[in-house]
Design a protein around this nucleic acid. Structure first.
Ligand SMILES: [Mn+2]
Ligand SMILES: [Mn+2]
Ligand SMILES: [Zn+2]
Ligand SMILES: [Zn+2]
Lengths: 159, 159
DNA sequence: TCACTAAATGAAAATCAATTTCAATAGCAA
DNA sequence: TTGCTATTGAAATTGATTTTCATTTAGTGA
């Protein structure tokens, strides 16, 4: 890792080391805040901007990609294996991955047909995950009179 | 229109009328700022928040959808005909649409297989559009020595 | 080992789109 | 008309992201 960065003109520092390691431990769909919390648990002197900058760097060198699902918080997704799309649960805000190889093929064709030089795909399915629907069903059984539907309102940017 | 809104408990006002009309005139992939500018040209007394709120309302009543391409600016897309995906040119930031009916079918299958209750799809192809590549090629012919590649850097949120 | 230089850091400030607040205004139903 | 409520516009707030800047540090090579 140190060597890898050195060839690109970057230096290795304890903070960078920690941020990188923490990111790869956390794995998928990590937000800056989540990573910052994680890093702070080990070294509370590390600054937010350091975490942010190193997350950007991880993307810069091609080890992660930004994922924006429209809830106002950018997540960072480790670049591994084959391309994948995301299920985004509007209720619990979780992300699940699904394979994209079949669909990617079709998208490539479309892009070629339209003379578009593809850099990447972004495929997202918004809806409600099974776990949320199960919970909802249980609740519905208890409360037969009213129908407390799952709120599918788009989340506000505020906490 | 007035009647349509009335049934949902909304009132019609000159400002609302103007915002709605302007939105449908502009058509596709409109940002709040763009719409605000347009509206202001006709009535400069209309406030930004009024435009914003009415754009939200247009979505609320199902006439438009938000489109987020990851450049930090939400666009609003008139809901028409069949579902479509977007080409997003990383160079000129333009959006082009492409048909999604074939791909949508596959996505539905994937969602069903994973017990996910789909609400909507979001399919985006990032890359460089033909027009941008043409310009680039012309430039390359003139300047044979250097190679002034198109910047594919993700745009900053700042103006 | 030592000194030098560019890169990196942390705190704070700035930016920016999005959203809310609030007092004043204006639809519209009765 | 009257009264109630939705709507408006300006300004303030929010929350994520990004930059600034003074200081520290990694890596280089004498
Ligand atoms: Mn992922
Ligand atoms: Mn569109
Ligand atoms: Zn869920
Ligand atoms: Zn272009």
């Amino acid at each position: 890792m140190r060597e890898f960065l050195k060839t690109k003109g970057y230096k290795m520092t304890p903070q960078r080391e920690l941020v990188f390691r923490s990111f790869f431990e956390l794995g998928e769909h990590v937000s800056v805040d989540e990573l910052f919390d994680r890093v702070k648990r080990i070294d509370k002197a590390v600054g937010y901007s350091t975490v942010w900058r190193n997350l950007k760097l991880i993307c810069e060198v091609g080890l992660a990609r930004e994922v924006t699902v429209g809830d106002g918080v950018t997540r960072y997704d480790r670049v591994t294996r084959k391309p994948h799309g995301h299920f985004y649960c509007l209720n619990c805000k979780s992300l699940q991955e699904f394979d994209l190889n079949e669909i990617a093929g079709r998208l490539s064709k479309v892009a070629t047909a339209e003379k578009f030089a593809t850099e990447s795909f972004k495929v997202e399915i918004e809806g409600v995950c099974q776990s949320c629907r199960d919970k909802e069903n249980k609740k519905a059984k208890r409360t037969l009179s009213t129908s407390p539907k799952i709120s599918r309102t788009k989340p506000s940017r505020q906490k």
